[in-house]
Design a protein around this nucleic acid. Structure first.
Length: 542
RNA sequence: GCGCCAGUAGCUCAACUGGAUAGAGCAACGGCCUUCUAAGCCGUAGGUUAGAGGUUCGAGUCCUCUCUGGCGUACCA
């Protein structure tokens, strides 16, 4: 419908000179009595033309060559809106289109041929994923899905660091627990990893190797085994919520292949590096920032900035057209440094899209739960999935704008999980599946020849909702606003439930019944496709 | 102090990117199944969009200031 309007106005540009310069927007009015689409065009032209908006509106109408079979009427309303009411028979044509495209309906080839990298989760292997990581994981995977739907060839990447202080502490934490389980008296430091999972790993070592590891270096065997165990656990958790990475990028590779040295030398050549207090500093003040920052500590170890800059240069060199970095708001001060780094090295920062999601606040028994991996008072993603299920977890994180803080009330999620809106969507899908099965038994099948019979308010409203899907996917993907898909699906499901309450199938005239079945098939397809983007299952039974 | 994000119904959140009477779910109350899924539908009630200015035909949306909350502001990541 919208593209018809766009073409209509393109034609009119030949007659009305001022339309060529105008920015023409169409929107769906909240109030259905205002028609199917509306434009504020005449109002925006008031200033340019210095004329009455309603007068301009009339002139535009006089110059639109609309086919009455497509557009039933055009009205001027309020201060100067142009309202378009489409012919109901024309509106139904989308049902056939959805039938033809099936699982592909809603996809776009706008960005086909382009490669995108989405980096997310990227938690170091020091412990199980928490609920906080869960938001990052789900949002990242859904973003990747959406980019695929608009044509991108997407790689999902997990960046990690298995060296440095954190990992040394991890290795020694396991070793201490190992010795403790063997009966030795130990003094477990407060700043070591306190979680039960450390003891589990130690126990596993005893089961496999007895006490033969007593003399092993904490940074050797203990660290390695801890890393591999924890990574296996992380991958398992991710798999449970349908997330599979294409690539795990180890920070160490950046040292092994000389990337780190190359970055240091290149920055040095540009006089962006200097030594002070035994440390190496990055001259960010020369790049428009307030102060310089350390990139190599006096101990000789780099800060996160250096490897992160090096890592990003590999992203460019691997040929991605768009590079998406997703992280929590606790990192919001770090990316400008990294950005400045690769920009100084001559890479195009426009390709990098930084998406920051706000924190998840965990509420339990009416209180905010403060969490830290180190202190082990966190709630793991695993536990959450076990409690409420993968679909609820995915939907919960997908239904909110990334820039909003998210309150996750554990008790509510556990107790009232059946009241979660995800069930509302899944129910719509299951309901249609059931209807189709039942009607088939009555020898009624979808028929696309008499769609014009779908003329009631409920039917027309539902069909028009179907038009918004493709646009919603495109908008969500281009703007990284994942929650729009969930919002759209809720509206679609509501419209469907409304339709179904008013419009019976069995008992209606055969032509009408079969047209309604065709509509049900179309709705089912769109709900299923939408849930697929969100990574939520579309059950046939509930 | 400074930077980023937010503040909309009792609670959790929407609002088509500046449009027409600000909408859903939960919670409350009242209706609707002898036939296709009632995990549903319909109705009632609930609002000075944190506050004050400004921009314009028009502001929840943009600008300025104030207040409140979250996250940062490291030789942690």
């Amino acid at each position: 419908m919208k593209s018809y309007l766009v073409n209509l106005f393109d034609e009119a540009k030949n007659k009305l000179e001022y339309l060529k310069e105008a920015n023409i927007n169409f929107s769906v009015p909240n109030d259905t009595t205002h028609g199917d689409y509306a434009t504020n065009l005449a109002m925006t032209l008031t200033k340019v033309l210095k004329r009455n908006p309603r007068e301009i509106a009339q002139e535009i109408i006089d110059n639109l060559n609309a086919d009455p079979k497509v557009i039933e009427k055009i009205e001027i309303a309020g201060p100067g809106f142009l309202n378009f009411k489409f012919n109901s028979e024309y509106v139904t044509s989308i049902i056939s289109e959805i039938k033809e495209k099936g699982d592909l309906f809603g996809k776009s080839d706008k960005y086909s041929g382009k490669k995108a990298l989405v980096e997310f989760v990227s938690a170091n292997p020091t412990g199980p994923l928490t609920v906080g990581h869960g938001r990052n994981a789900v949002v990242g995977d859904t973003l990747a899905n959406m980019l695929e739907w608009i044509g991108y060839d997407v790689d999902r990447e997990y960046y990690f660091n298995n060296a440095g202080r954190q990992m040394r502490v991890l290795g020694d934490s396991v070793k201490q627990r190992y010795l403790e389980l063997l009966g030795e008296k130990i003094d477990f430091p407060e700043d070591y990893y306190q979680g039960e999972y450390i003891k589990d790993i130690a126990q596993k070592l005893i089961d496999e190797s007895g006490d033969s590891l007593k003399e092993e270096d904490a940074e050797g065997r203990f660290k390695d085994i801890a890393e591999s165990e924890i990574f296996a656990d992380i991958k398992n958790t991710l798999a449970q919520i349908n997330i599979v990475f294409d690539n795990f990028y180890n920070e160490r590779d950046l040292y092994d292949d000389g990337k780190i040295d190359w970055v240091v030398n290149s920055l040095k050549e540009k006089d962006l590096i200097y030594e002070k207090d035994d440390a190496t500093w990055f001259r960010l003040s020369a790049l428009g920032q307030d102060q310089d920052k350390v990139i190599i500590k006096s101990t000789g170890e780099p800060t996160y900035r250096l490897p992160d800059i090096a890592y990003h240069t590999t992203k460019f060199e691997r040929g991605y057209d768009m590079i998406v970095d997703l992280f929590g708001s606790d990192h919001n001060a770090t990316y400008p440094d990294v950005m400045a780094g690769f920009k100084a090295l001559g890479y195009d920062e426009e390709k990098v899209k930084v998406v920051i999601h706000q924190f998840v606040t965990i509420m339990e028994k009416g209180e905010v739960v403060k969490m830290s991996t180190r202190k082990a008072n966190f709630i793991t993603l695993d536990e959450l999935v076990e409690e409420v299920g993968a679909d609820v977890v995915r939907y919960f994180f997908n239904m909110r704008s990334v820039s909003s803080h998210l309150n996750f009330d554990i008790d509510l999620a556990k107790k009232h999980s059946e009241e979660n809106p995800v069930f509302y969507l899944q129910y719509a899908h299951a309901r249609i599946s059931s209807i189709l099965k039942m009607t088939q038994e009555q020898d009624l099948n979808a028929c696309y020849d008499n769609l014009k019979l779908l003329s009631s308010d409920e039917e027309q409203a539902l069909i028009k909702k179907l038009y918004e899907f493709s646009r919603s996917v495109l908008y969500s993907a281009e703007n990284f606003e994942i929650h729009k898909i969930a919002n759209y699906l809720e509206e679609l499901a509501a419209q469907f439930h409304k339709f179904y309450t008013h419009c019976r199938i069995i008992g209606s005239e055969k032509e009408l019944a079969e047209a309604r079945i065709a509509l049900c098939v179309a709705v089912k397809t769109v709900v299923k496709n939408g849930l697929a983007i969100l990574g939520v299952s579309a059950p046939d039974k509930m």
